[in-house]
Design a protein around this nucleic acid. Sequence first.
DNA 1: AATTTTTAATCAAACGTTTGTTTAATTTTA
DNA 2: TAAAATTAAACAAACGTTTGATTAAAAATT
Lengths: 209, 209
Amino acid sequence: MEYSEKQLAIINTAEKLFSVTGFDGTSVRDIAREAGVNLAMISYYFGSKEKLMEAVFELRTEKIRLKVENLLQDDTLSNLDKVNILIDDYVEKFISQQEFHKIMMREQLIEKNNPIAGFIHELKKRNLQSIKKLIQDGQKTGEFKKNIDIVLMMITMVGTVSQMITSQRFYREVNNLEHLDEQEFRKHIRKKLSTHLKHLFKISLTNEI
Amino acid sequence: MEYSEKQLAIINTAEKLFSVTGFDGTSVRDIAREAGVNLAMISYYFGSKEKLMEAVFELRTEKIRLKVENLLQDDTLSNLDKVNILIDDYVEKFISQQEFHKIMMREQLIEKNNPIAGFIHELKKRNLQSIKKLIQDGQKTGEFKKNIDIVLMMITMVGTVSQMITSQRFYREVNNLEHLDEQEFRKHIRKKLSTHLKHLFKISLTNEI
DNA sequence: AATTTTTAATCAAACGTTTGTTTAATTTTA
DNA sequence: TAAAATTAAACAAACGTTTGATTAAAAATT
């Protein structure tokens, strides 16, 4: 799908407002005002508020698909290297796109079966398959130990990064990092999370410290 | 605060509906209908929808306060034992009160400064102080290594449990656990999470495996 | 090249619902 | 019988969406 400048303005504004005040907490009038377009243009372009949300999702997830497949086939890297690259990649995406990921977190809390929930479910499944393959490769070569609960490890990774985003203000306060600007702070937590998760994964996968 | 049976019905229903459809996604009419009370009773008893939410929070958090202080002073236990007990305690609370915790997760995603956000902030601070004390005790006795990022460990613990709740349907599906009823399944993930987190904490705190 | 027709974009206004809250009357309880 | 609880009805405000008129640009016809 190709979007005009004005359509993109609506999508970007919607993403921002949805992430701050939630889907139900954001009115189409809020979006129209902030995006500088007429109220009717939202229905005109996207059909409905719901469909606008879907447009946000499709736009933000379309670029995520690649990368992993190529990485899996690269035989110049050890499997632990690959795991580390995936962690870096995941943390980077999550932190730099945190507005969108806040929307994701909220949507996952809704239990009813909406198109978005299905979307996220598929995304998770695909990710799990890739990681599973990677871990199993490492187990065959003896790099990784047996009896690894991959799903639980994924939950720890996703959960840790999500929780950092959720409580970043708290983290900032207790670590006296208020002097950093937003960009520096994001860089800081990205580095912290990467190191922390790589360490956790290494000891969980390999028995080594 | 003491509540009548009818008031508790309202609070419990509100908790359930807020957790499933969110605060903005739940109307006071929904709550009244499901709780079997007249619409006006909500304003009559609680003043407003917002205040009803606060009542849910106060009721659900009033019992959490104790426990930790007593545990810290117990000198028949090693510090690692205490950490493990805290993990068990935390996981148990989170899983058995997951409706309420879903509300907590959602509220933390809202950036505006509401009374609830302040409430959660204080709760986190208190928890962190207790854990910090505990870890430092362990470091003095040589049980735990130096240079532990306690906040990051807390984020991993809270994040892992939160993420498990968020994606429990996914976890259930990929592990073929559909045959378990709700109670059995909760018990299952409680056990899984406890073991997993204790393992992560042990290796992160002690250098041992 | 000039004119007409068609399509797309934009807008203010209005639509019918639903929202949270309040009122005023009535019933129940102490 | 005074206070508390309960009710149906009403309130204004906000909601997502649609309408019909207007403008601008593009395409088709003469």
